[in-house]
Design a protein around this nucleic acid. Structure first.
Ligand SMILES: [Mn+2]
Ligand SMILES: [Mn+2]
Ligand SMILES: [Mn+2]
Ligand SMILES: [Mn+2]
Lengths: 233, 233
DNA sequence: TTTTGGTATTAGTCGAGACTAATCATAGCG
DNA sequence: CGCTATGATTAGTCTCGACTAATACCAAAA
């Protein structure tokens, strides 16, 4: 097919750029994210650069140009609108939507995008807590921090969880660790040990989480509940 | 992309086989249907044959094998479920759904297919009157005849209209010539001339239709209203 | 300063699907 | 019975994305 590959590269670059704060994205990272060999990535990155979608400083890394960022946001918007629509309107569970949306995202027209947006009431957050870029390319900034960065005894609200692994998502849902849930870090064992957390408000249930799993959960301060996402639902 | 091309070829062959009653489908017809050169079609047909999806008697034409027919029906089912879902649930008009479904059909998983089917109440007809193949590969037989084959004075019910041309569909909708509408052939001018029809019951409105347009409208006898399609909606 | 190891690029190949130009096969007509 | 029109196939290319194997770069360690 034509632009499916390009779109997936742009999306991957966008996401990598936003988790490794600001720095340029390496060829290898892109390759790993897409399950592709590094020469394949090099080749593709050159073409993206030739198309003016990315800046490619050889042996340095890669950054999205404004045009490229716009295109990437378009794909991300499709993906997240689809994820939300599939769960809200068609009863999908949040652990299965990702794969479905990954295929559908490339076949979504501007009209379908608009109709999904409308049917959902112009949402700003997807089922996993990721922000849905607006039609004009605006994205709410994410300031959530990984759960382990809380101080012992500190409370937070789950803002976002990593949406890649269905198993993980099912497990988190069982524990009640979904976006919007209150969570308190009771203590965290040293030497990268597990964390003990309370899920829910005053007398919620306690759980122990492995370090790795906890790192995929992002929280915001419990006090500061100025979340634009809640604005228009 | 991988199977998008194959699926489109299978779908095209299926549809051509069903409009030219029973005969084998020629390479040229396939090429024309897909907007592709005949050598491209020859090449692709060979690969479909190698995959056991079609029977290709050289210089004869092509027929779907049971496996091929099953695969084709799968695509057709996706297409028509999507068309219906887009109109019913997302407010698409019937002239624009075809193009959208043509892209989405290849990205529909078995799960999404099942959920669309359920959300629509297990429908059997798409917005243009085409039958939706059941999950088990069953298709309601279509016995509708072209409008011009009615005898002057004879009444019928619109069963199906050709869904390829949006302009045409908009025009037909304006005239009220949609599936389920009653239509009476008042008279038809000789030498392939235009037809005068009444749309609606006793005192409906009268319209004149060009021969070509009329040939894209398919009707069933007004009396025999044993239509399985009306069964479960 | 030389060695080493991780990362990126080059070189060469492959299959999918498309194209054009040239050739063939056959049905039907004269 | 031979000729021709129509339709199908062959031959040869092209682009897109992927791959492996070989090479080049560069930073840090020795
Ligand atoms: Mn994708
Ligand atoms: Mn998501
Ligand atoms: Mn299609
Ligand atoms: Mn249709």
């Amino acid at each position: 097919m034509g632009n499916r590959a390009l779109e997936d590269y742009l999306k991957a670059i966008y996401k990598l750029a936003h988790e490794g704060h600001g720095a340029a994205v390496g060829t290898g990272a892109v390759a790993r994210a897409l399950g592709v060999s590094t020469p394949s990535a090099t080749n593709m990155l050159k073409r993206l650069a030739a198309a003016g979608l990315i800046e490619h400083r050889a042996r340095r890394g890669v950054t999205l140009t404004p045009t490229g960022e716009k295109a990437a946001l378009e794909v991300v918007r499709h993906h997240r609108l689809l994820e939300l629509y599939l769960t809200e309107a068609l009863g999908y569970s949040w652990d299965t939507v990702h794969a479905e949306a990954d295929r559908l995202e490339h076949a979504v027209s501007e009209e379908l995008e608009a109709r999904l947006d409308e049917a959902l009431g112009y949402p700003t957050v997807d089922p996993h807590g990721d922000p849905i870029p607006a039609a004009d390319g605006t994205v709410r900034a994410v300031r959530d921090r990984p759960l382990p960065s809380l101080a012992p005894g500190q409370a937070g609200i789950v803002g976002r969880v990593s949406d890649a692994d269905p198993e993980k998502l099912r497990y988190l849902a069982d524990l009640g660790l979904v976006p919007g849930a209150a969570v308190t870090l009771l203590d965290s064992l040293p030497f990268e040990g597990p964390l003990r957390v309370r899920v829910g408000d005053a007398e919620g249930s306690e759980h122990v989480l492995g370090r790795e799993l906890a790192t995929d959960i992002f929280v915001r301060s419990a006090g500061v509940d100025r979340d634009p996402a809640k604005g228009n639902r």
